[in-house]
Amino acid sequence: MPGKPKLHYFDGRGRMESIRWLLTAAGIEFDEVFLETREQYEALLKERALLFDQVPMVEMDGMKLVQSRAIMQYIAAKYDLYGKNLKERLLIDMYVGGTTDLLEILIPHAFFSPEDKQKHITIIEQKAKERYFPVYEKILKDHGGKFLVGNQLSWADIQLLEAILMVEEKCACILSDFPGLKEFKQRISEIPTIKAFLQPGSKRKPVSGDKYVATVRTVLQAYYNVKLN
């Protein structure tokens, strides 16, 4: 019988956090191997464990899975979080594509200078309020159900909740103009596996800080400063 999935990444959010969310929502326990030194990363490269020389990497079902999107598609399909038919799967892919775009704006925040972080928060708030959240508010209203797609929890719901919570960490009142999303957040947060993930002591990672940034730069030998364009 296969063992628990093993996640290879840094001890922080980054591009692994959405994978953690998805596994947890599915009720799947997992182990983690945290990259802390350049030598660990080079060992994975030497073993040819990283198909494109990148992490995240997930060992699962006898495979070494890379590329975040592919990993999550596999997990969603395996654990019935990917819709009931081709049309529902298409909708899930579209909605996940939107939240992924929003998360890609959020993820590098820790790497900015203090001055740029303040500017970046303004960008996050603007993008969320003007481009992304109005879309999901309308989807929920038009669909008229408890979930974004069909009548059951899907990958799209899980990643939307993750994105909402991450934006709220930067802009606490962001949902004041989005009653549908506010109700969605409260409802999805009460699902038992997700509720447990939101409690202290879970494997959900905190907001990334200086230690995480320093570790990533050391392991990947990325010593440049990230700047806003």
Score class of each variant (00 low, 15 high):
residue 116 D to Q: 11
residue 76 A to G: 10
residue 98 G to E: 05
residue 86 L to C: 08
residue 123 I to R: 13
residue 82 Y to V: 02
residue 71 I to R: 04
residue 37 T to E: 00
residue 66 V to G: 11
residue 92 I to A: 12
residue 46 K to I: 05
residue 113 S to Y: 00
residue 61 D to F: 10
residue 104 E to Y: 06
residue 62 G to I: 05
residue 137 E to T: 01
residue 36 E to A: 08
residue 103 L to Q: 13
residue 81 L to Q: 11
residue 38 R to E: 14
residue 58 V to Q: 00
residue 127 K to L: 09
residue 56 P to L: 04
residue 45 L to G: 06
residue 91 L to G: 04
residue 99 T to Q: 12
residue 49 A to Y: 10
residue 131 R to D: 14
residue 124 I to T: 00
residue 108 P to V: 00
residue 45 L to A: 04
residue 110 A to W: 03
residue 115 E to M: 02
residue 129 K to L: 15
residue 91 L to Q: 15
residue 108 P to D: 00
residue 85 N to H: 12
residue 97 G to W: 06
residue 72 M to L: 12
residue 44 L to Y: 04
residue 121 I to T: 09
residue 46 K to Y: 05
residue 68 S to W: 06
residue 61 D to I: 04
residue 122 T to M: 10
residue 51 L to G: 09
residue 112 F to R: 02
residue 133 F to N: 03
residue 98 G to F: 03
residue 141 K to F: 08
residue 47 E to K: 15
residue 126 Q to A: 13
residue 91 L to W: 13
residue 75 I to M: 15
residue 91 L to F: 15
residue 125 E to N: 11
residue 121 I to A: 00
residue 118 Q to P: 00
residue 71 I to W: 04
residue 54 Q to A: 12
residue 35 L to W: 06
residue 126 Q to H: 14
residue 103 L to R: 12
residue 68 S to D: 07
residue 87 K to W: 13
residue 68 S to Y: 05
residue 84 K to T: 14
residue 105 I to R: 08
residue 47 E to M: 15
residue 61 D to E: 15
residue 84 K to C: 14
residue 125 E to A: 15
residue 116 D to N: 12
residue 50 L to M: 15
residue 48 R to P: 03
residue 41 Y to Q: 03
residue 66 V to K: 01
residue 53 D to R: 15
residue 88 E to Y: 03
residue 115 E to K: 09
residue 65 L to N: 08
residue 126 Q to G: 12
residue 126 Q to L: 11
residue 112 F to M: 02
residue 137 E to V: 02
residue 68 S to A: 13
residue 52 F to M: 10
residue 131 R to T: 12
residue 128 A to G: 01
residue 95 Y to D: 05
residue 51 L to H: 10
